[in-house]
Design a protein around this nucleic acid. Structure first.
Lengths: 266, 266
DNA sequence: AGATCAGTTCCACTCAATGGAATATGTTGA
DNA sequence: TCAACATATTCCATTGAGTGGAACTGATCT
């Protein structure tokens, strides 16, 4: 933390704390304690954030919570030619064709973030949750599909970083993870082997950048009874087709870049 | 601007500038000029934001753009009992029943922000755009539905603030706006009178808080040929039913609040 | 009604952020 | 290929913006 502008650190510590905290919001005292700031400092910070619309305050209950301006910023975030815009038609086609909920997940460091979701008719529980939801690379079909299609060096790095975090939740060992990655890489898609959420199953395929490295994934979230082995093959094919098209539209000759071949995503 | 923590102001000025700027990102020089900061300061700020994951930097092109962590924060933002979660089933039902794209917009000061969207089969252009999209209260059917169902005092305030902003875009006069508000209030829904986007039409109904004040809106985005007067009535009825149910589930005896009757949204 | 606790305001001090200058890096043109 | 330029990045002495202890206010509990 050598030279980090500490204002920024504090501001986002506060915002993250509000994001973690109770849905209804947090009181000043608890928030200040949680981020380890004196009350007056936290107070001033919160009011600055309120002026920006990033935090809301219910005067009746004295609760602070995240403001809607964050949606406005998030809407513009993401890869340059906007993966989301490119992928949307594909998501809609898949939902229409399969009658399932489709997720678009992007790699973000050691995690994958859901940046779009096209909802099917049946209600789905997923650890991804909704747009903005995060999972460790390797957990769930989409994030597994991404991990399985990273270059080996990066895979190792991700595993080294994520394994300890995974153990905290459940029993994941490196051997199992690597075997699963190999299997997924072989068949070209991740399916719902790990029954992390009872009754729920899914299937994910990677979206590959020009260099053949996974930058994102498409996945289906569904129930176990709808994901039969025969249907899985059909679904995987459809997903692969769309993912391939998205990847192709992502890559070619990015006009914003000097030469073709540049990575689209950091 | 008396005592505002200027760090926060600068940080969000930078983020907003990145949101406005070109999709592909901005160079340090231009960004610094745009937010009127010396280059080194902008540079330090950007790197602090990168450490937080709020900004990404493509080393090849030297372009800075908004990072995916914003999605993570935005996912947790919004009203306490999470209007979005409450409303989602309704959005899905409506999309299924009507085959149209449904928007969920929430009031945010003088604007309305789209916080969810359930996509129908046909491609829709709307000024709202997507989740995170913003429109002035009064523009478009959803934001008009909200405006029309605010208490008179607030309506005046909104009009006073928004009219100048509106004139910049197109010819809106106060008389027209007020007449439209009265009409919408009378029929209980906003329909696509103003053809701001050629070929596109829509219909919005308010979601009312316990005090009868609009806090949000449901709207349909569609094409003019699909929005016939007869169908509008059917659509309005369906929307009203769902909006009523959402409003009801929003209000009663919020357990987070001491007494029933508190406003859910700031 | 008094006590207690959370929220808010105040302001002198200080240390963190600032930004001018210097350096490094990469880009353009000849 | 190499100079000339433009942009990005690092450095560090200066300083004023943010800090936080203390005091005030107002709400809530007993």
């Amino acid at each position: 933390m050598s030279d980090s502008t500490s204002s920024a650190g504090r501001i986002f510590a506060v915002l993250r704390q509000l994001a973690q905290g109770e849905r209804a919001g947090m009181r000043l005292k608890d928030l200040a304690a949680a981020v380890d700031l004196p009350r007056p400092t936290a107070h001033r910070l919160l009011h600055a954030l309120m002026a920006e619309g990033m935090v809301e305050h219910d005067p009746r209950t004295k609760l602070y919570r995240l403001g809607l301006e964050l949606f406005v910023l998030a809407a513009k975030a993401g890869s340059p030619l906007n993966l989301r815009d490119i992928a949307r038609p594909g998501l809609l086609r898949l939902t229409a064709a399969l009658g399932e909920t489709i997720f678009l997940m992007v790699r973000n460091g050691f995690d994958a973030v859901c940046i779009d979701r096209s909802a099917g008719p049946l209600p789905i529980r997923s650890f991804t949750g909704d747009v903005g939801g995060t999972v460790m690379l390797g957990i769930g079909q989409a994030a597994m599909a991404i991990l399985a299609f990273l270059p080996p060096g990066e895979q190792d790095e991700v595993i080294r970083y994520n394994l300890p975090r995974m153990r905290a939740l459940s029993a994941f060992d490196e051997g199992f993870l690597r075997a699963e990655m190999a299997r997924v890489r072989g068949q070209g898609y991740a399916d719902g082997a790990a029954g992390l959420i009872p009754g729920m199953a899914g299937l994910g395929v990677p979206i590959l950048g020009r260099d053949g490295e996974a930058v994102a994934a498409l996945s289906v979230g569904s129930t176990t009874d709808r994901m039969t082995p025969e249907r899985n093959v059909v679904i995987a094919d459809l997903l692969k087709r769309e993912a391939g098209e998205i990847g192709a539209r992502l890559n070619p000759f990015d006009p914003a870049l000097r030469r073709p071949g540049a990575a689209i995503l950091g």
